[in-house]
């Protein structure tokens, strides 16, 4: 972590400690959310998109201004099947970001615009701000398990067991793994299906929700957070999207920095107001 980021975090931490959480709504004026509005919006997301749920995270990291069982929101196992490069082309072709105000998107910005129907990404994944959650690998090598370790060649494996009547490979009722990958869009590369856990936390300093990404490779091994950045448009990697400590979970995770969130939400709200729609936090 760079020094300036450290200093900023220390500063932010101090401000968070001494300022009281926002209790009065400034959603319409500034595009920010109070704690209770965050919970309201979260409850709404959970009921409309039940793949999301509230979690309490690590007890030691619990925030006292949030209910213990509603510390943050998470949806697990969001697949990504397409390659970033191909999405990028379509994305440019479709004019980039568009504002979506249907209820499932919670008034956030859909970055994929019109080619949405071609995308395999879940669109119940509310994308925020200018992040292309294209979640695809654009580099072949990136998808191999860089988390180190790998399999050690000298380990005696199941195949070496002689008395092998419990071998899954020898069992006629087990679907063998080759079939499992046959569902991939193309057969040339079976490595493309990464999955992501997407979580939303409340950032008390910016008074906004904040989105975090945790990636897994195709064999469901954790992806190093740096590799997640390769799935994000290079315009945003390390600027809007950074790697930091998750406020409720152990380890480093990629996150969309919340500093512009308020301003962007304000823009969205203004559009809604200009259309005569009264914006509410749970919409």
């Amino acid at each position: 972590m760079v020094l300036s980021q450290r200093i900023h975090e220390a500063f932010k931490g101090t401000v968070e400690r001494i300022t009281a959480p926002r209790t009065v709504s400034a959603f319409k004026e500034k595009g920010v959310l109070s704690v209770s509005e965050f919970i309201l919006a979260g409850d709404n997301l959970v009921s409309k998109c039940p793949t999301w749920s509230w979690e309490s995270g690590e007890p030691s990291k619990r925030k006292s201004y949030l209910p213990a069982e509603k510390q943050f929101l998470i949806t697990r196992n969001v697949p990504c099947l397409r390659r970033a490069a191909s999405i990028e082309e379509e994305y440019e072709g479709a004019g980039g970001e568009v504002l979506v105000d249907n209820e499932d998107n919670d008034g956030w910005l859909a970055t994929h615009g019109k080619p949405k129907d071609k995308l395999d990404d879940d669109d119940n994944l509310p994308s925020m701000e200018a992040l292309e959650i294209s979640m695809n690998s654009n580099v072949h090598q990136s998808i191999s398990n860089h988390f180190g370790g790998e399999e050690e060649e000298d380990i005696p494996d199941m195949a070496e067991y002689e008395e092998s009547n419990s071998l899954i490979e020898a069992d006629p009722a087990t679907l063998q793994p080759t079939y499992l990958v046959a569902h991939e869009p193309d057969d040339d590369n079976i490595l493309r299906t990464r999955t992501y856990d997407v979580s939303i936390t409340y950032d008390k300093y910016y008074q906004t929700p904040r989105v975090w990404l945790t990636g897994y490779d195709e064999s469901r091994m954790l992806l190093q957070p740096e590799l997640v950045l390769e799935d994000v448009s290079q315009d945003h990697a390390r600027k809007t999207v950074t790697i930091e400590d998750h406020p409720h979970l152990p380890g480093k995770h990629a996150s969309i920095h919340p500093c512009r969130h308020g301003a962007v939400m304000k823009k969205i709200i203004d559009v809604l107001v200009s259309r005569g729609v009264e914006p509410e936090v749970d919409k």
Binding site: G148, E151, I155, S166, E169, P177, M221, Q224
Partner: peptide
């Protein structure tokens, strides 16, 4: 009855290993 069930990874091996030195 007989049982099966050790999970195989994509190299069709049973053992997996993950390094978390970076975060731990």
């Amino acid at each position: 009855p007989n049982a099966v069930g050790w999970e195989l990874n994509k190299q069709r091996k049973v053992y997996r290993c993950i390094s978390l030195a970076k975060s731990m």
